[in-house]
Design a protein around this nucleic acid. Sequence first.
DNA 1: TTGACGTATTCCTATATCGGTATATGATCC
DNA 2: GGATCATATACCGATATAGGAATACGTCAA
Lengths: 117, 117
Amino acid sequence: MARAATTADAFNAVAEPRRRLILDVLASGERPVNDLVRELGLAQPQVSKHLRVLREVGAVEVREHGRQRLYRLNGPALKPIHDWVKSYESLWSERFDQLDVVLEELKQKEEGNGSDE
Amino acid sequence: MARAATTADAFNAVAEPRRRLILDVLASGERPVNDLVRELGLAQPQVSKHLRVLREVGAVEVREHGRQRLYRLNGPALKPIHDWVKSYESLWSERFDQLDVVLEELKQKEEGNGSDE
DNA sequence: TTGACGTATTCCTATATCGGTATATGATCC
DNA sequence: GGATCATATACCGATATAGGAATACGTCAA
Protein backbone atom coordinates (compact mmCIF):
# COMPACT_ATOMS: atom_id res chain seq x y z
CA MET A 1 0.00 0.00 0.00
CA ALA A 2 1.10 3.56 -0.51
CA ARG A 3 0.45 6.69 1.44
CA ALA A 4 -3.22 7.63 1.77
CA ALA A 5 -4.50 9.84 -1.02
CA THR A 6 -4.30 13.55 -0.43
CA THR A 7 -8.03 13.53 -1.00
CA ALA A 8 -8.59 10.92 1.68
CA ASP A 9 -9.44 13.48 4.34
CA ALA A 10 -8.74 17.00 5.51
CA PHE A 11 -5.59 15.91 7.37
CA ASN A 12 -3.98 14.68 4.18
CA ALA A 13 -5.20 17.54 2.03
CA VAL A 14 -3.86 20.12 4.42
CA ALA A 15 -0.47 18.50 4.89
CA GLU A 16 0.67 20.31 1.75
CA PRO A 17 1.80 23.82 2.76
CA ARG A 18 0.58 25.50 -0.41
CA ARG A 19 -2.89 24.20 0.13
CA ARG A 20 -2.86 25.77 3.57
CA LEU A 21 -1.78 29.04 1.99
CA ILE A 22 -4.65 28.85 -0.45
CA LEU A 23 -7.07 28.39 2.41
CA ASP A 24 -5.47 31.28 4.25
CA VAL A 25 -6.07 33.57 1.29
CA LEU A 26 -9.63 32.35 0.86
CA ALA A 27 -10.26 33.10 4.51
CA SER A 28 -10.48 36.76 3.52
CA GLY A 29 -13.16 36.06 0.95
CA GLU A 30 -14.18 34.43 -2.29
CA ARG A 31 -11.58 34.55 -5.08
CA PRO A 32 -11.16 33.58 -8.70
CA VAL A 33 -8.31 31.25 -9.54
CA ASN A 34 -6.11 33.90 -11.09
CA ASP A 35 -6.21 35.98 -7.92
CA LEU A 36 -4.70 33.04 -6.06
CA VAL A 37 -2.17 32.54 -8.82
CA ARG A 38 -1.02 36.12 -8.43
CA GLU A 39 -1.10 36.27 -4.65
CA LEU A 40 0.77 33.03 -4.17
CA GLY A 41 3.10 33.26 -7.15
CA LEU A 42 2.33 29.70 -8.22
CA ALA A 43 1.69 28.38 -11.70
CA GLN A 44 -1.96 28.32 -12.68
CA PRO A 45 -2.22 24.57 -13.29
CA GLN A 46 -0.80 23.79 -9.85
CA VAL A 47 -3.28 26.13 -8.23
CA SER A 48 -6.12 24.44 -10.08
CA LYS A 49 -4.83 21.07 -8.99
CA HIS A 50 -4.52 22.10 -5.37
CA LEU A 51 -8.02 23.55 -5.50
CA ARG A 52 -9.31 20.25 -6.81
CA VAL A 53 -7.88 18.42 -3.83
CA LEU A 54 -9.33 20.97 -1.44
CA ARG A 55 -12.68 20.65 -3.17
CA GLU A 56 -12.65 16.89 -2.88
CA VAL A 57 -12.27 17.04 0.87
CA GLY A 58 -14.89 19.77 1.11
CA ALA A 59 -12.54 22.50 2.27
CA VAL A 60 -13.54 24.82 -0.55
CA GLU A 61 -16.56 25.29 -2.78
CA VAL A 62 -16.86 26.75 -6.25
CA ARG A 63 -19.27 29.03 -7.98
CA GLU A 64 -19.25 29.89 -11.66
CA HIS A 65 -19.20 33.52 -12.68
CA GLY A 66 -18.75 34.08 -16.39
CA ARG A 67 -15.46 32.53 -17.32
CA GLN A 68 -14.20 32.67 -13.79
CA ARG A 69 -14.66 30.14 -11.02
CA LEU A 70 -14.98 31.75 -7.66
CA TYR A 71 -13.64 29.66 -4.83
CA ARG A 72 -14.62 30.12 -1.25
CA LEU A 73 -13.62 28.54 2.01
CA ASN A 74 -15.77 25.94 3.70
CA GLY A 75 -14.40 26.04 7.22
CA PRO A 76 -16.28 23.18 8.87
CA ALA A 77 -14.30 20.71 6.77
CA LEU A 78 -11.38 21.58 9.03
CA LYS A 79 -13.21 20.88 12.25
CA PRO A 80 -11.97 17.28 12.58
CA ILE A 81 -8.42 18.57 12.65
CA HIS A 82 -9.25 21.13 15.25
CA ASP A 83 -11.13 18.61 17.33
CA TRP A 84 -8.24 16.20 17.30
CA VAL A 85 -5.48 18.64 18.07
CA LYS A 86 -7.48 20.54 20.65
CA SER A 87 -7.23 17.70 23.10
CA TYR A 88 -3.48 18.25 23.21
CA GLU A 89 -3.73 21.98 23.83
CA SER A 90 -3.04 21.66 27.53
CA LEU A 91 0.43 20.38 26.75
CA TRP A 92 1.72 23.77 25.71
CA SER A 93 -0.83 26.39 26.65
CA GLU A 94 0.31 28.89 29.25
CA ARG A 95 -3.15 29.04 30.69
CA PHE A 96 -2.88 25.36 31.47
CA ASP A 97 0.65 25.81 32.77
CA GLN A 98 -0.76 28.25 35.27
CA LEU A 99 -3.51 25.87 36.16
CA ASP A 100 -0.81 23.32 36.85
CA VAL A 101 0.89 25.80 39.16
CA VAL A 102 -2.31 26.37 41.08
CA LEU A 103 -2.97 22.67 41.41
CA GLU A 104 0.58 22.15 42.60
CA GLU A 105 0.16 24.82 45.26
CA LEU A 106 -3.04 23.24 46.44
CA LYS A 107 -1.27 19.92 46.70
CA GLN A 108 1.58 21.43 48.72
CA LYS A 109 -0.90 23.04 51.10
CA GLU A 110 -2.75 19.77 51.40
CA GLU A 111 0.45 17.98 52.36
CA GLY A 112 1.31 20.73 54.83
CA ASN A 113 -1.97 19.96 56.61
CA GLY A 114 -1.13 16.28 56.83
CA SER A 115 -1.95 14.35 60.01
CA ASP A 116 1.68 14.17 61.12
CA GLU A 117 3.40 17.54 61.89
CA MET B 1 8.76 16.39 -7.21
CA ALA B 2 6.82 14.00 -5.04
CA ARG B 3 4.77 14.58 -1.94
CA ALA B 4 6.65 16.07 0.98
CA ALA B 5 8.25 13.54 3.31
CA THR B 6 6.12 12.38 6.20
CA THR B 7 8.95 13.58 8.38
CA ALA B 8 8.87 17.04 6.83
CA ASP B 9 6.70 18.46 9.61
CA ALA B 10 3.99 17.62 12.10
CA PHE B 11 1.25 18.17 9.51
CA ASN B 12 2.62 15.43 7.30
CA ALA B 13 3.47 13.09 10.14
CA VAL B 14 0.00 13.31 11.58
CA ALA B 15 -1.83 12.87 8.30
CA GLU B 16 -1.51 9.12 8.81
CA PRO B 17 -4.41 7.95 11.01
CA ARG B 18 -2.45 5.27 12.81
CA ARG B 19 0.11 7.77 13.90
CA ARG B 20 -2.65 9.85 15.41
CA LEU B 21 -3.87 6.76 17.23
CA ILE B 22 -0.40 6.16 18.61
CA LEU B 23 -0.30 9.70 19.92
CA ASP B 24 -3.74 9.26 21.43
CA VAL B 25 -2.57 6.22 23.36
CA LEU B 26 0.61 7.94 24.49
CA ALA B 27 -1.48 10.82 25.76
CA SER B 28 -2.36 8.63 28.72
CA GLY B 29 1.27 8.03 29.58
CA GLU B 30 4.61 6.59 28.62
CA ARG B 31 4.51 3.18 26.92
CA PRO B 32 6.84 0.50 25.60
CA VAL B 33 6.43 -0.45 21.94
CA ASN B 34 4.74 -3.76 22.62
CA ASP B 35 1.99 -2.05 24.59
CA LEU B 36 1.18 -0.03 21.52
CA VAL B 37 1.34 -3.11 19.34
CA ARG B 38 -1.24 -4.80 21.55
CA GLU B 39 -3.51 -1.82 22.02
CA LEU B 40 -3.61 -0.92 18.37
CA GLY B 41 -3.49 -4.39 16.90
CA LEU B 42 -0.76 -3.45 14.45
CA ALA B 43 2.33 -5.40 13.48
CA GLN B 44 5.38 -4.54 15.54
CA PRO B 45 7.55 -3.33 12.66
CA GLN B 46 4.90 -0.90 11.49
CA VAL B 47 4.57 0.50 14.97
CA SER B 48 8.31 0.99 15.18
CA LYS B 49 8.27 2.69 11.80
CA HIS B 50 5.44 5.02 12.76
CA LEU B 51 7.23 5.85 15.99
CA ARG B 52 10.33 6.75 14.03
CA VAL B 53 8.39 9.25 11.96
CA LEU B 54 6.82 10.72 15.06
CA ARG B 55 10.22 10.94 16.67
CA GLU B 56 11.68 12.73 13.68
CA VAL B 57 9.12 15.47 13.89
CA GLY B 58 9.51 15.70 17.65
CA ALA B 59 6.05 14.43 18.50
CA VAL B 60 7.38 11.67 20.72
CA GLU B 61 10.52 11.04 22.72
CA VAL B 62 12.17 7.80 23.77
CA ARG B 63 13.82 6.55 26.91
CA GLU B 64 15.63 3.25 27.28
CA HIS B 65 14.62 0.92 30.05
CA GLY B 66 16.29 -2.46 29.91
CA ARG B 67 15.31 -4.05 26.65
CA GLN B 68 12.33 -1.83 26.29
CA ARG B 69 12.07 1.63 24.76
CA LEU B 70 9.57 3.78 26.52
CA TYR B 71 7.90 6.32 24.27
CA ARG B 72 6.20 9.40 25.54
CA LEU B 73 4.27 12.20 23.95
CA ASN B 74 5.83 15.58 23.29
CA GLY B 75 2.77 17.72 22.85
CA PRO B 76 4.30 21.06 21.84
CA ALA B 77 5.31 19.54 18.51
CA LEU B 78 1.62 19.69 17.64
CA LYS B 79 1.24 23.34 18.44
CA PRO B 80 1.80 24.55 14.85
CA ILE B 81 -1.18 22.50 13.75
CA HIS B 82 -3.31 23.89 16.52
CA ASP B 83 -2.20 27.41 15.80
CA TRP B 84 -3.05 27.11 12.14
CA VAL B 85 -6.42 25.49 12.49
CA LYS B 86 -7.46 27.63 15.43
CA SER B 87 -7.82 30.66 13.19
CA TYR B 88 -10.66 28.88 11.42
CA GLU B 89 -12.50 27.94 14.59
CA SER B 90 -15.02 30.73 14.22
CA LEU B 91 -16.31 29.10 11.06
CA TRP B 92 -18.07 26.32 12.93
CA SER B 93 -18.07 27.17 16.62
CA GLU B 94 -21.49 27.73 18.15
CA ARG B 95 -20.08 30.37 20.39
CA PHE B 96 -19.12 32.36 17.34
CA ASP B 97 -22.47 31.66 15.73
CA GLN B 98 -24.07 33.33 18.69
CA LEU B 99 -21.66 36.23 18.40
CA ASP B 100 -22.82 36.56 14.82
CA VAL B 101 -26.41 36.71 16.00
CA VAL B 102 -25.59 39.49 18.44
CA LEU B 103 -23.73 41.44 15.81
CA GLU B 104 -26.63 41.01 13.42
CA GLU B 105 -29.05 42.33 16.01
CA LEU B 106 -26.87 45.35 16.63
CA LYS B 107 -26.81 46.01 12.93
CA GLN B 108 -30.59 45.80 12.66
CA LYS B 109 -30.96 48.23 15.53
CA GLU B 110 -28.46 50.55 13.93
CA GLU B 111 -30.44 50.56 10.70
CA GLY B 112 -33.65 51.17 12.61
CA ASN B 113 -32.08 54.38 13.97
CA GLY B 114 -31.18 55.58 10.48
CA SER B 115 -31.52 59.28 9.59
CA ASP B 116 -34.73 58.74 7.65
CA GLU B 117 -37.72 57.45 9.72
C1' DT C 1 -16.34 32.80 -36.38
C1' DT C 2 -12.29 34.08 -34.70
C1' DG C 3 -9.56 35.19 -31.09
C1' DA C 4 -8.50 36.02 -26.37
C1' DC C 5 -9.21 34.98 -21.75
C1' DG C 6 -9.82 31.93 -17.42
C1' DT C 7 -9.46 27.53 -15.92
C1' DA C 8 -9.08 22.41 -15.95
C1' DT C 9 -6.94 18.34 -17.55
C1' DT C 10 -3.41 15.28 -19.45
C1' DC C 11 1.09 13.40 -19.79
C1' DC C 12 5.60 13.03 -17.90
C1' DT C 13 9.18 11.86 -14.30
C1' DA C 14 11.23 11.49 -9.77
C1' DT C 15 10.33 10.32 -5.37
C1' DA C 16 8.45 8.58 -1.05
C1' DT C 17 5.30 6.19 1.08
C1' DC C 18 2.94 1.89 3.46
C1' DG C 19 2.38 -2.86 4.63
C1' DG C 20 4.51 -7.46 4.84
C1' DT C 21 8.18 -10.47 5.75
C1' DA C 22 12.61 -11.49 7.15
C1' DT C 23 16.35 -10.32 9.69
C1' DA C 24 19.60 -7.59 12.55
C1' DT C 25 20.68 -5.55 17.04
C1' DG C 26 20.85 -5.32 21.89
C1' DA C 27 19.60 -6.63 26.63
C1' DT C 28 18.47 -10.23 29.95
C1' DC C 29 18.44 -14.67 32.07
C1' DC C 30 20.22 -19.40 32.83
C1' DG D 1 27.81 -18.91 25.65
C1' DG D 2 23.05 -19.83 24.21
C1' DA D 3 18.28 -18.92 24.21
C1' DT D 4 14.85 -15.54 24.43
C1' DC D 5 12.67 -11.22 24.63
C1' DA D 6 11.98 -6.25 22.82
C1' DT D 7 12.76 -3.42 19.18
C1' DA D 8 14.72 -1.60 14.86
C1' DT D 9 16.00 -2.01 10.17
C1' DA D 10 16.27 -3.73 5.33
C1' DC D 11 14.11 -5.20 1.33
C1' DC D 12 10.09 -5.65 -1.67
C1' DG D 13 6.03 -4.12 -4.39
C1' DA D 14 2.18 -1.23 -5.39
C1' DT D 15 0.69 3.23 -5.49
C1' DA D 16 0.13 8.22 -5.51
C1' DT D 17 2.02 12.21 -5.39
C1' DA D 18 3.88 17.30 -7.03
C1' DG D 19 5.70 20.21 -10.40
C1' DG D 20 6.33 21.34 -15.38
C1' DA D 21 4.74 21.78 -19.97
C1' DA D 22 1.36 21.32 -23.30
C1' DT D 23 -3.21 21.41 -24.36
C1' DA D 24 -8.25 21.05 -24.00
C1' DC D 25 -12.51 23.38 -22.75
C1' DG D 26 -15.93 26.98 -22.05
C1' DT D 27 -17.10 31.88 -22.18
C1' DC D 28 -17.07 36.37 -23.84
C1' DA D 29 -16.05 40.18 -27.18
C1' DA D 30 -15.65 42.01 -31.81
